[in-house]
Amino acid sequence: MKALVFAEKADHLNRISSKLKELGFEVHALSFAEVNADFLYLAGPKYDYASITAAIDMLSNEIRPDLVVFSSTKLGKEVSSRFAQRKNMTCITECLDLQLGDSSITVSRYSLGGKTVTKIRTHLPAVVALVADAIESKEQSFQMNVREFQIPDSPQIRTVSREEKRREAVGLKEADVIVVVGRGLRKEEDLKLVKELAKKLNAEIGCTRPLSHDYRWLPEERMIGLSGEKVSPKLLISIGVSGQIQHAVGIMNSKTVIAINTDENAPMKEHSDYFIVGDLYEILPELIKNL
């Protein structure tokens, strides 16, 4: 069994390669950096979907893989589905795991915005995009045949500029205590209240999508949910968060959840062990005093 893998990030590629090797695949990887693979096609970086799709198409015609695998990043989803459509194949994105059956694979992914987890079985050959962070695998040994590869330069759109986002190292995944803040917070300055609480508890701060992506009060790395981080702290304190499913799915694996919300009917209630009906502006100062 052969797998062809592409990911623009080396750490994603290594994780996915190990998983595929563990399942018994011969791993062929298209990469911009030295990564683990049985056959490594080392190429200069390119970020346009058309050129990468063309490259994967060329390699897959040569290798005839049983499975074509991408990292489920935005670029990965874009390219995997364009490639799958070209080949008239199934593509399943946002996969949280991968199991190999008899000429078939089974994957899990969230459905209904995160309300449920769906297990999907499809026959090979197939295309999947895996959430690299969710994939668990042990270190493997590889053949490490390296070949230089030229990605054909065939963009269909013109790139005017590209700017790297500033990234902050955030320890949400490892945190024992997380304080999550949502749109119940009225203004950016009020974050100091949340920061004060987090400091007392030695907690990491997380947030809902509007705070990071609309208001830009907190960096994107702190956003929790379907399109953000999935966390599993011992204690999570959720403040001014409505608890819509696309957010709540990210906190499912917390051991204990305390929520503070003015609305007694907020959906957050069903995702909480302790649901405090009240105003964060009255409760937080008192709570900070109490700790």
Binding site: T118, M252, F275
Partner: peptide
């Protein structure tokens, strides 16, 4: 082109204890 083997909500049962005052 594929088969849904199962579609279930994760088994998390929150206490949902309401506190007011």
């Amino acid at each position: 082109s594929y088969e849904i083997v199962e579609n279930l909500a994760p088994a998390v049962d929150r206490k949902q204890e309401v506190i007011e005052g």
